[in-house]
Structure formats: structure tokens, C-alpha cells
Design a protein around this nucleic acid. Sequence first.
DNA 1: GATTGTCTTGACTAAATAGTCAAACCATAA
DNA 2: TTATGGTTTGACTATTTAGTCAAGACAATC
Lengths: 251, 251
Amino acid sequence: MQKKDLQSEQLILKAARRVFQRSGYGGARMQEIADEAHISKASLHYYYRSKDKLFHTVFREDIRLFLIPLIGILRDPSLSLESRIRTFVGSYMNTLLENPGLPLFIMQELSSNPQRLISLVEETVPGVEGRPVDGYTGSDASVGGVSNRESSDSTSKEANVDEIPLLAAFIRQIEDGMASGRCHKVDPEQFILSMISMCVFPFIGRPLIKVLLKKDEQQYRDFLVRREEEILLYLLRILYTNDKPKDNSRH
Amino acid sequence: MQKKDLQSEQLILKAARRVFQRSGYGGARMQEIADEAHISKASLHYYYRSKDKLFHTVFREDIRLFLIPLIGILRDPSLSLESRIRTFVGSYMNTLLENPGLPLFIMQELSSNPQRLISLVEETVPGVEGRPVDGYTGSDASVGGVSNRESSDSTSKEANVDEIPLLAAFIRQIEDGMASGRCHKVDPEQFILSMISMCVFPFIGRPLIKVLLKKDEQQYRDFLVRREEEILLYLLRILYTNDKPKDNSRH
DNA sequence: GATTGTCTTGACTAAATAGTCAAACCATAA
DNA sequence: TTATGGTTTGACTATTTAGTCAAGACAATC
């Protein structure tokens, strides 16, 4: 009758997320997740039939979290190039500061099973793949079914045939900027990759960079908080011909 | 009598490297490594007593490979700031193009066991840690013994007490550049991290970026080959006040 | 208080996997 | 040919781990 369901389910998911992010799919132990959720392993299996299903639920949510800022780039066509960049860096650095373990986890699992990406990304961002979007992949459908309700904000159906490059609008703006002379010559794709790299890598390379720069946990976090501003400075300097189009207030 | 030793040992290491890079420590199976080396699991254990020991041998070599370009930055104090940057990006992109799986592997294992970094890095680059360098850690000495001879190029002993920040020389040069007005205002540490990020991340985020930019394997590789030049362009533009100090030949 | 349906768990099973061992193998040198 | 010593392996053990199950706890309704 009652639904302590959600309470426990949420606790389990949180615990599972911690453990999966810490150890990856292969390294995670169901017992460890159960311990961290303060329940028995049997209970864990009561809520999530299998490790695979539990993992899928966590990963699906995480990749969504990771991709949303990227999606933000192409949504909202009204944004100017500069505010698009500002928005992206801002929201991405924010997301990552809240979830420092996210990037490495995502990259790890994506690398060991790249196939997974296609179905999950298509699900989150319809029309990413060039192939006609015929409603998800259908390969391992019927797997999830657990937390499948809150995708209401991304209901941009309209399976436009096969030319919706995810970053087309962004790239177009850069090309326009170059044509008008406001922007330096750059390869737009390389520029975008650089932007993503500068935001994401510091979270992936944390242990290494901490040693190289001799920072403890607190110092490294502060360093990352300051980083948003610095990245923006770099990106605008790379892109724009005249120094500082606006916002000259540093420090 | 005979020493097919080396032959087999090398084959095993290569196989182990492939498998470990593909699946990480936790995901790797001794059987899989044995199969890939075309020997039995028992033989595998004959050469390397345990999975741990095998892993250590592989990881030690890999982290060395990964760190050498970084070390290159501080070595050779004669390099100018600009050529230091050029050298770094060039050699790093080269190393990574030859070993695309390296960065994710390193970051993965470093994250799940950050402690390991300190001993291995100190071993490769004496004086990284602030602590007095008293000749390695001594913790798990006598483990390797395999590839311990070609460290002749790093004989910068002189355990200078406790102030050898790894990147001090580099940072100093940037500060000098800023003082003289040749360089923009930047946070040297943030700049260095950006440089590393732009080189390394594309290899870690490969599967994701491939989808975002809709590139197949060949296209992505070409993209990465072209990237060295583009990164240099960006870095110099970030750093130097007057556009293009030299080398104006693009494309 | 008995009934019902949901949760919870200790104890179990089955499969996977690291590591061992004794016997066989094979090249070389006496 | 035989002895020797490194190499190889099939078959085994011990341990870990995902997943199951039947019995019980618990809360709400009758």
C-alpha cells in the first residue's frame, strides 16, 4: 500500500552513483552499494533486479546531466555568439563543480562501451545522429522503465530528416563572425573542442594536476572556481579580433 | 639456459597493456591477457606472479611515457617561452597520437588510487613533491626490477630541499613576459592547465566528441593531427599581446 | 486481532576468476 | 642417450560476487 518506494529508491540511487563514479561499472560491488545505502544486498536486488539495470538507471541520469549544458548551446537560437560561449562555460563549470566525479565516469564508461552512447544520446537529444530518427534505437529497449517520466522538458520531436548537426547553429555564428572580420580565423570545430576541453579536463585530471600544481583539495577547488572567468578570457581572446568586446572588469 | 624470457615477457607486456587500457585494472581478466598473448594463464602467472605485479609494471611504464613531455617543459632551461610551448604541444600530441588510449587509462587508475601517483611520479621526476626527496618512497620497492635501467636521462639529483615546483621555470617566464608587456595578463597556472587540457582531452573524450562532430575513426584522427597547429595558434594568441610573434603560415 | 500487500533479510546457489601445482615439454650440453 | 633447467600447461582450489528464495517484519485496512 504505502510507497516508501521513492524514499529508498532515491537513497539507493545516490549510493549507487557514488560507488559507480568511484569505481566504474566493473569495479563497483553490489555489496558495497548496499552497504552505502544501509540496506541488505537482497533489498538492493529487490529494487533493481540486476547490476546492469541499476547501472543503466544511474548512467542514463548522469549522461543527461553531462549533456544538458552542451544542448544549451544549440537551444535558444536568440543567443549571440559571445553570450552563447559565456552561457556554456558558466553552466558547464557549475554543473561540474557540483558533480566533480561526473566527467571521468562518463568518459570511462563511454570508452568501454561506445555503443551505449548512441542510444542514450539520441534519447536525450533527438536528432544528434545523422541517421533518420525513427524513435530511439530499439536495440535494448524495455531495459529501463524505472525513472522514465521527467523527460518532459525535451519534447522537441519533429524528427527532421538527417541534417541536424548538433552544433550547426554555433558553427554558423563563428563563420559569420569570421566573415565579418569580428572574429579571427579559427576552425570552429577545433574551437568548440578546446572550449569543452578547458572546462572538462581539470575534473578528469584532478589527481595529476593537484600534484603538478601542489594544491590540496581546498586550493584546487578554489582554483577551479576562479577558472570560469579565466577560460572566458582565453576563449574571447582566441576568437575576437578587437581585444575585449565588452566587460573589461578583471579582478 | 636460453632466454626466450625477454621475447615472451615483451609479448605479455604488450598484451597486458592493450587489455588494461581497454578495461582498466578492475575490468581486465588474466585469462584475457593470456589469450591475447597466445599463452596459457598458468604461463602468464609464471612470468608475473600476480595481476597486481603485472599491472604495476605496465602502469609504471605508461605513466612515465605520459609524464615525459611534461618533464620536457622544465628541463632545458635554455628554451624560450614560445619554443617551450611549441615543444610541449608538439611532443605531447605526438606521444598521444601514438598512444591514444594512454590518457584515459592513466586518469582512471590515478583517480581510483591517487596514492599511487606520488610514488611513481617521484620516481620518474625527482623533486616533484615538496617533501624532501629521500630517494623514492621505499614503500613497495623491489617490485619492479624490469625496466629500471633507462632512467639515465633524468639524473638531476641534487635533492634541493623543498622548493622545486615542477613548473617554476615555465611560470617565471610567463611572469617575465607579462612584466615586459609582451604577454597579456594571465594566471600562469591556469594557462598551463589549459594547454594540457587542449592536448589531452580530445583523447579522453574521443567517443563523445566523435558523435558530437559526426566523425568516423579516420576523420577523427585527421582532426587530431591538424589539432597541434590549431592549439599553438590559440595558445600564442592567448598569451602574446602583438598578434603572431612569428610564423604566419597557416594552411 | 486477523488479513493483505509491501518491504527486508539471512542463508543459499551458480558462475567467474585469481592463483597453484605437478606433470610434461624441449633445447642444450655432457 | 641422458641429465639439466627453464618453460608450458591442464586440471585443480579458494575466493569473490551477482543473483535467488523462503521466511519473517511491518504497516495499514478491515
